[in-house]
Simulated scan of single mutants.
Amino acid sequence: MTSITNQLIFSTSLSIEAHTIAQEYSQRISNIVKRKQVYLNTLAVYAVDNYLQCMGFATDWKASDSRNNLAVKLMDVADLEVKNIGKLECRPVLPKAEVCKIPPEVWSDRVGYVAVQLNSALKEATILGFTPQAAAYISLSQLQSLSDFLLYLSELEVAKSPKTEASSSLVKIGQWLDGAVDAGWQTLEHLLNPQQLGLAFKNAVSMTRGQKIDFGAEVEGISVALVVKIASEADGEVDILTQVYPVGQNVLPEGVKLSISDESGATVLEVTSRDEDNWIQLEFTAELAEKFQVKVVYRDLQQTREFQV
């Protein structure tokens, strides 16, 4: 049975399963003090694992050091691997304790430290709160709340998740030559300023369209325009020129990457903006019905557009 109070203090019963796991990892240790340490650590991790699963977070306790027989013998470790987030250290706290002790050996490779109070009979565990930073002793009165804990984990999960945004449909670029331009692709006058147009398009092309790409507030609101030019050749092939321009600025930020991949996903062409580049571009020839991908990457953000000639 579990319960959550209005103050978001989570309590859970330490079931037979919890004690069976604790017994499994402590029974082979001859030192009495160390054996008790492993037993209590295991119960604390069990409680946090139960709590996080109730809150919808995916965990992998079996992949944690606290379920490794050699690691628990050599270290004072009570970690829990949370998928897509990292390791939490789950420290047991005995009744009437005023501080949570965190051993120096777990001060790194942890995204946070959770204090778990065990009752005297070891029948119930209460998660008191957490701290994102390690110290030898953390006052229980200074722990952050469980509501802050859940928000903290959610923010970490978002921050560490792949930030990829791909197109939802295939852009049939071959039809552009017949005047059938896919929705969302604009004339360049709607995307770029007159000075950019004057620099960029000195040669006549059969069809040119562009699409704005927002990288969002995470990278200071930077936006670029992906521009695609297509011109037919006499042998049935088409010349394709892809370009990336800054929107609202004169130069691209350094490190913007433009790449072309074939239908299998293998990168065949790639260019990266340098300091003070006004634009970057890649030019290639494709056959009718051929598919390819254009990727625009900046920092850890990526957007992909899929095309068919």
Rank of each mutant, 00 (worst) to 15 (best):
V93D: 05
L94G: 03
L94E: 08
L94V: 00
A97N: 12
E98A: 04
V99R: 06
V99D: 12
K101R: 12
P103D: 07
P104Q: 14
P104I: 06
P104G: 03
E105V: 09
W107H: 15
W107F: 14
S108Y: 10
V111P: 07
V111Y: 05
Y113L: 02
V114R: 02
A115V: 08
A115R: 06
A115P: 06
V116D: 01
V116Q: 04
Q117S: 14
N119I: 04
S120P: 01
L122M: 13
L122D: 01
E124I: 12
E124A: 11
E124Q: 15
T126F: 08
L128W: 13
L128P: 14
L128Y: 14
G129M: 06
G129Y: 10
F130T: 01
T131L: 01
T131H: 04
P132E: 08
A135T: 13
A136R: 14
Y137F: 13
I138K: 14
S139N: 15
Q142E: 14
Q142M: 09
Q144L: 13
L146H: 07
L146F: 03
S147M: 06
S147V: 02
D148H: 09
L150I: 10
L150W: 03
L153T: 00
L153D: 01
S154C: 01
E155F: 02
L156N: 05
E157C: 04
V158E: 11
V158I: 14
A159V: 00
A159T: 03
K160A: 02
S161P: 03
P162H: 03
K163A: 09
K163H: 15
T164R: 03
T164P: 00
S168L: 10
S169C: 05
S169D: 04
L170F: 04
V171I: 15
V171D: 04
K172Q: 13
K172H: 12
Q175Y: 11
Q175E: 14
Q175G: 02
W176K: 07
W176N: 07
D178V: 01
G179P: 06
G179A: 07
A180D: 15
A180C: 09
D182A: 15
G184C: 07
W185K: 09
Q186D: 10
Q186I: 00
L188Y: 09
E189M: 01
E189T: 15
E189R: 10
H190V: 05
L191W: 12
N193P: 02
P194W: 11
Q195K: 13
Q196T: 06
L197Q: 11
G198P: 00
K202N: 11
N203L: 12
N203K: 14
V205H: 14
V205S: 13
